[in-house]
Amino acid sequence: MTVLIDRPMWPAHGTVWSHLVSDASLDELHAFAAANEIPRRGFDLDHYDVPARRYDALVAAGAHPVGNRELVLRLRASGLRVSARERANRAEHPAP
């Protein structure tokens, strides 16, 4: 079980962002996020978006830095990846 983080490179809201994922379970991901005071609002179906200023602290807390390609490959291999089609479907039909 591993929590992975890619380099901050995704621009939005005046900063760049990393993705934080688990290659084992969403429970592991949520536990790691909670232990590191990452707000639940940062969760986006299969990952947390985290600002660049948090990157070093999350690595120090045990997140393994990987490239964005490896992050996606490992997320897919885990079966936790939410596809673009699933994202669009959920956006069109949100849960009550």
Results as ranks from 00 to 15, higher is better:
R41D: 13
A77D: 02
L58R: 06
H19P: 08
L29Y: 04
V16Q: 00
R90E: 07
V59P: 11
H93W: 10
E92M: 12
V59H: 14
E70N: 10
H93E: 10
A52G: 13
D44C: 14
N89Y: 13
D56C: 02
A12W: 07
V72L: 07
L45K: 15
T2Q: 13
E28W: 15
R54K: 05
A52M: 08
W17R: 00
P94N: 02
L20Y: 08
Y55K: 00
A35P: 01
A52R: 07
G62E: 00
D6R: 07
D44Q: 14
R54L: 11
R85F: 13
V72M: 08
L75R: 01
A60S: 08
D23N: 15
A34D: 15
S25Q: 11
A88T: 09
S18H: 03
A60F: 05
H64C: 10
H13L: 02
H30D: 12
Y48S: 03
H19C: 00
H30E: 13
V50H: 07
P94M: 04
A61W: 06
G62D: 01
L20G: 01
G42L: 04
V59E: 07
M1T: 14
E70K: 07
L45R: 15
M9V: 14
V82R: 03
G42D: 07
S78I: 08
V59K: 07
R69M: 00
M1R: 12
M1G: 15
D27R: 13
R53S: 14
A34S: 14
P11G: 08
N68A: 06
H13G: 09
S22H: 09
H30S: 15
A61G: 08
E92I: 01
A12I: 04
D49W: 12
A52K: 07
A95G: 03
A24F: 10
A91T: 11
T2P: 06
F32R: 01
V3K: 05
R40A: 15
A88K: 11
A61M: 09
W10H: 05
R7E: 15
V3N: 09
